[in-house]
């Protein structure tokens, strides 16, 4: 599964975005913007960087992926399905009562999900605990944790950041999905958490920045931070909320909203996806 072929990874990322659009469908709410902003990073991790076995989701030596911004679960579900953790057919049951695909990641429901996240600010702390536990076991597995920039307002993020530095968790790589929008508007207008680079550096992290939609640069950055020892690593990924779907890009309305039939068709076309009929649902 692991490939270094940038063109192939870009194709997979488009497919994952198409899966996200198809999971949301027509007339149903879904977190489109924040799922698409991190789709390239998630693709790079699941299809190139991480050591994992979809057929053996609990392989002890696997690298771990935690989505602290759990509301973007659709991107993780798409990646897990495309990797083969469960049949892609399951995607159409997302958020259905009794489904293995809950509105936020649930480790007891979905193979490949490592923690229950979505109450924002907690996933990074859980990731730190996993990283510490792996170190006790003498494993070289890495822990990748995606956090959101709106999520940075949660105080627990900074508790976790201090803990990661205090325990020198260099097997922890955090990717900040810097899409610059929170649910209610632009972060600089609503609750400005800048400057980010300086904050994380001051908290004891190795900090690098990358264009979160440049696949080659993402791969290079993920490799590069492996060389840094003795510190947790922060990759600030500059992203566009709704990336890949022209009418949703940088638009706060698509944080968690529905698509109409024309938007759905347009999104499928743009992503080069077969315009499968949207999943029928009776209600929200």
């Amino acid at each position: 599964m692991a490939t270094r072929d940038v063109k192939e990874l870009e194709r997979i990322a488009r497919m994952i975005r198409a899966d996200i659009v198809q999971m949301i469908g027509v007339g149903q709410k879904g977190h489109l913007g924040g799922s698409c902003s991190i789709a390239d990073v998630v693709t790079a991790l699941y299809f190139s960087k991480m050591r994992h076995h979809p057929a053996n989701p609990t392989w002890p030596e696997r690298d771990r992926f935690l989505l602290s911004k759990g509301h973007a679960a659709l991107v993780q579900y798409a990646a897990l399905a495309e990797c083969g953790y469960f049949p892609k057919e399951e995607l159409k049951n997302v958020k259905r009562c009794g489904s293995m695909l809950q509105g936020h990641p649930d480790l007891r429901s979905t193979p490949g999900v490592e923690a229950n996240t979505g109450s924002l600010g907690q996933g990074l702390s859980i990731a730190c605990g996993i990283a510490a536990g792996l170190r006790i076991d003498g494993l070289t597995s890495r822990v990748y944790c995606v956090i959101g920039d709106g999520e940075l307002a949660e105080g627990q993020i900074w508790e976790a950041s201090m803990a990661a530095a205090a325990f020198k968790l260099d097997n922890l790589v955090t990717i900040l999905d810097r899409n610059k929008l929170q649910a209610m508007g632009r972060i600089v207008d609503r609750f400005d958490t800048n400057p980010l680079h300086d904050k994380w550096r001051a908290f004891g992290w190795h900090v690098v920045e990358v264009n979160g939609h440049d696949m080659a640069a993402i791969l290079e950055t993920l490799d590069q931070v492996d060389q840094v020892k003795g510190k947790p690593k922060m990759i600030i990924a500059h992203t566009i909320k709704g990336a890949g779907i022209s009418f949703a890009e940088n638009r706060v309305e698509f944080h968690n909203s529905s698509l109409d039939a024309a938007q759905y068709e347009a999104a499928c076309t743009q992503l080069g996806a077969e315009s499968v009929p949207p999943v029928e649902r009776t209600n929200n």
Binding site: G121, Q122, G123, S125, G129, G133, Q156, E159, A163
Partner: peptide, 26 residues
């Protein structure tokens, strides 16, 4: 000492961190 974690005065992080440790079988 290698199995003891001084988490500082940060109970929220301590609790989620413990969840992470348990996910590695501790």
């Amino acid at each position: 000492p290698e199995r003891f974690f001084e988490m500082g005065i940060a109970e929220a992080n301590m609790t989620s961190f413990a969840a992470g440790l348990s996910l590695t079988g501790k």
